[in-house]
Design a protein around this nucleic acid. Structure first.
Length: 839
RNA sequence: GCGGACGUGGCGAAAUUGGUAGACGCACGGGACUUAAAAUCCCCUGGCUGAAAAGCCGUGCGGGUUCGAGUCCCGCCGUCCGCACCA
């Protein structure tokens, strides 16, 4: 009588054994080929969510599979532990951010262990451990020495709610990425990392990333935003000059105005003694930056009365405008307007009645007159452009740049959209920037023997702002250089710095340096990195930069940190709501709603509830499912199995009750097979084939991270075994099945493996060997088509000669009927696949 | 606006290089076992016509290439994502 698989008992037992034996601790000195499998480490919010479960299950399957394939696998876990939520908790609940964070870590570690991830816990750390951030401070000082860090007074994005500075990457639609508050511009002295020094490298390096999604590479490419063009000077009628940048120097003879940003030095100078200009500039700055606002915003200009002299014609004067569509922080904050071939310039020219002259032919249109309100930006030959006439655009660009350079009024330049990375944050819960400000010596690095600069414990969060700055003693220190009175830097580093090198520290974490070069290089680059696409730009770009910076400093000979990247989809769930006041929706959690047909009913009072869209699980819509109780109910393997089933991993996975139940049923089916294993005699060739095709297919699917396909293949195999009569083949298939499911459902696999008399762990077992001879069928089904439509199938020996297949097809009863005596015009035979008879 | 991805049954999805569309799972329906239920097992399930055999249609829409198109080409429509007054 088959027993039931007791998941709770088995989970606990095997998790304890893995832990006790340190089964998944990676050995640096192993002779085996190494593989580094990493999932993006979590922020310790206190609870794991389904997204974590999906993410870590994927990585775990790959890590366990590679172990079985004989590799030494590094599969570590840690905590991205600095950041705002800890401070918010401190403000709301009066707990210390550190205490709150470490408590959360303990809770989440236990939850992760409960799902049976094969992680190397010996390498665990949190970025808020002084051992970690102290080494980060050392790396920061290395960068200071290497000239990759500078301090600059600059206008920054200020989040008035979080009371801190945000990087450009953290401003979304003019709002703070975390608080959602409208970002203000403020002038502050900030520390910057010279990521722009690496702009070219970071762009070119994308080409080497063969195992990254194209989508992510494209997003980074756009973010880095390389533009090549000409930077040149116009002489201005006030005796000065104004510099502009353009990617279209070829259109220089189509210019009809020069436009400068409201913050441009020339505009500021004019505004200083002309209130009208000042008022206009103010109006420009007030303009919104959100998508909708930009879309609808009118092009506005203020004619300064100044004129600029065209570089190719001293008699050609162009009016100089201050314009709201010119941005100070891109290029040089000034452009020359060519209305015929740029939409914004055309809008502007039509509004202010400026000349619009065609300088690129559009089909037959070559005349200077340009009509309509749509600028022409397509290909063509230069016209109405003196010495450029007849040239293609690319040649004309080159010709103009050449002239500008030889005549000395301009030069070919590259402009980047990417800015340097501002890393100063006016927060407590982050890595202190190891700098001391001295009145006489300036900004002095903290001496290495004084690292780590530790955060003070006695801080208060009862008022907004930075507690470090308010702390009575912490910031008062003597200058390391002159010994005079000095002040610690009270800003901390952006938490993205913490996550820019944690994967290196996982590979090697000595006590006295950030990492050991030789050991780190044994593991790096990460072979497979898995995480959410939301990090496509920020984290992944910063980590790439950091790694390249380390290489430039000679600390690590690795250019790209992540050889393979996979961005997994989200876990989603239906939403449930009722319309509240003022069109505001009142959301209901899944366990507050009963579904009958299409309609939802509130469990509490039986009132109707609308079933809304399937969306990413989120607190705000209350459509979350807590993994904890689910694991207790169904066991870790069922949850893991469901996470891998059905949806391709890059797409969203909809959580459903029936889905997890299906997974649980499958685990029980597996158990019935394992538990009912009985030896028998006889060969079952078809089952042998199915088994070996599955072994090979599942291996390929896991390596390709196509877990849904691996799952489907396992269902097929299990179906086949269940249907098969007792035989030696069947017994062998069940024994092999234990190993094939082991990476995905490790607990039941260990349990069955032990029950079958194996003393070693299945986690240490080898992946079953494939017999290549069994991968090919000896019979094939050949489709027979008449005029491309399937009419019959033939079963023939694999590799049957073409003529033989053709003859068999033509003599098949159904085909004879279909042809009805007509002789075929043509017969196409695809060996082992199909015959198409054209009648 | 620019860039990208995607569109296949009631649902999640499979489908080497262009070669039998819908594997596998979920859900639905029917049946077996059971006093009954749960659990389990078996069968059916793209649409239309048909008692059946079988036939016709079918991968967002319209064209095209081909012996043959879910797959390739052209043009639309829709959904989602990223960027955004970037000169």
């Amino acid at each position: 009588m088959a027993s039931r698989f007791n998941a709770l008992k088995a989970d606990a037992a095997w998790q304890a054994i893995w832990e006790e034996r340190r089964t998944f601790a990676a050995r640096d000195d192993s002779p085996r080929p190494k593989s580094y499998v990493l999932e993006m480490f979590p922020y310790p919010s206190g609870k794991i969510h389904m997204g974590h479960v999906r993410n870590y299950t994927m990585g775990d399957v790959l890590a366990r599979f590679r172990r079985m394939k004989g590799m030494e696998v590094l599969h570590p876990m840690g905590w991205d532990a600095f950041g705002m939520p800890a401070e918010n908790a401190a403000m709301e609940k009066g707990v210390h951010p550190g205490a709150w964070t470490y408590q959360n870590i303990d809770a989440m570690r236990a939850q992760l262990k409960r799902i049976g991830f094969g992680l190397d816990w010996t390498r665990e750390f949190a970025t808020c451990d002084p051992e970690y951030y102290g080494q980060e401070q050392a790396l920061f000082l290395d960068m200071v020495e290497a000239g990759l860090v500078y301090r600059k007074e600059s206008a920054v994005n200020w989040d008035p709610v979080d009371m801190t500075v945000l990087a450009n990457e953290q401003v979304i639609d003019g709002k703070g990425w975390r608080s959602g508050a409208t970002v203000e511009r403020r002038k502050l002295s900030q520390w910057f990392l010279k990521i722009t020094d690496f702009a070219d490298e970071l762009l070119d390096g994308l080409g080497e990333l063969k195992h990254w999604p194209d989508k992510v590479k494209l997003m980074q490419e756009n973010w880095i935003g390389k533009s090549q063009g000409l930077q040149f000077r116009f002489s201005v009628s006030d005796g000065g000059s104004v510099e502009v940048f353009t990617t279209r120097p070829d259109t220089i003879f189509g210019a009809s105005f020069v436009a400068i940003a409201a913050d441009h030095p020339l505009a500021l100078r004019l505004a200083a003694d002309n209130p009208e200009v000042a008022a206009f500039a103010e109006k420009c700055r007030a303009g919104g930056t959100s998508a909708a606002e930009i879309e609808t915003q009118e092009k506005l200009g203020y004619n300064t009365g100044l004129t600029a002299t065209h570089p190719f014609d001293p008699d050609w004067q162009l009016p100089v405008y201050i314009a709201n569509f010119v941005l100070m922080d891109y290029g040089v904050g000034a452009v020359f307007g060519v209305p015929a071939h740029d939409q914004r310039d055309l809008d502007f020219a039509r509004k202010y009645d400026l000349p619009v002259k065609r300088v690129v032919s559009e089909g037959d249109a070559v005349a200077p007159e340009f009509t309509g309100d749509e600028a022409y930006t397509g290909p063509g030959k230069l016209v109405n452009s003196q010495f450029l006439d007849g040239l293609e655009i690319a040649d004309a660009k080159r010709a103009v740049i050449e002239r500008a350079e030889s005549e000395g009024w301009g030069k070919g330049t590259t402009v980047w959209r990417l800015r340097d990375w501002g890393v100063s944050r006016q927060r407590y819960w982050g890595t202190p920037i190891p700098i001391i400000h001295c009145g006489t010596c300036g900004a002095v690095p903290v001496p290495r023997d004084q690292l780590p600069v530790k955060l003070p414990e006695d801080v208060s969060f009862d008022v907004p702002g930075n507690p470090l700055d308010r702390h009575p003693t912490w910031k008062h220190v003597p200058c390391p250089k002159c010994g005079g009175e000095a002040r610690r830097e009270t800003d901390t580093l952006d938490t993205f710095v913490d996550s820019s090198w944690y994967f290196i520290r996982f590979a090697s974490q000595p006590g006295d340096t950030p990492f050991d070069k030789r050991i780190a290089e044994q593991w790096l680059p990460v072979n497979q990195y898995i995480g959410g696409v939301e990090h496509a730009i920020l984290h992944l770009l910063y980590a790439r930069f950091w790694t390249r910076a380390l290489r430039e400093m000679g600390k690590l000979d690795i250019a790209e940190p992540f050889a393979g990247l996979f961005t997994q989809g989200m876990v989603t769930h239906e939403t449930y709501y009722r319309e509240g006041d003022e069109g505001r929706r009142i959301w209901f959690a899944p366990d507050e709603v009963r579904i009958s047909g299409e309609q939802g009913i509130a469990i509490t009072d039986g009132s109707p509830i609308t079933v809304g869209r399937v969306e990413k699980m989120s607190k705000s819509k209350k459509n979350t499912v807590d993994p904890g109780p689910i694991v207790e109910q169904y066991g870790a393997d069922a949850v893991r199995w469901f996470m891998l089933s059905d949806s391709p991993p890059e797409r969203d996975l909809e959580w459903s009750e029936s889905g997890i139940e299906g997974a649980w049923r499958f685990i029980q089916r597996l158990w019935r097979l394992f538990d009912g294993l009985a030896d028998a005699d006889g060969e079952d060739k078809a089952l042998d084939r199915k088994l070996h095709q599955t072994i090979a297919g599942v291996a390929d699917d896991i390596e390709a991270l196509s877990f849904n396909k691996a799952v489907a293949k396992l269902y097929e195999l299990v179906n086949a075994i269940e249907k098969a009569k007792p035989s030696a083949s069947r017994a062998a298939a069940i024994r092999a099945l234990v190993r094939i499911v082991a990476p995905m459902a490790p607990h039941i696999a260990e349990e069955a493996w032990a029950a079958m008399g194996n003393s070693a762990l299945i986690a240490d077992a080898e992946w079953p060997e494939v017999d290549p001879a069994l991968l090919v069928e000896d019979e094939v089904t050949i489709a027979v088509q008449v005029n491309g439509k399937l009419r019959d199938t033939l079963i023939m020996a694999k590799g049957t000669a073409k003529d033989e297949v053709e003859a068999a097809a033509l003599s098949a009863d159904k085909i004879v009927q279909w042809l009805d005596g007509a002789s075929p015009k043509k017969v196409i035979v695809v060996p082992d696949r199909l015959v198409n008879i054209v009648a």
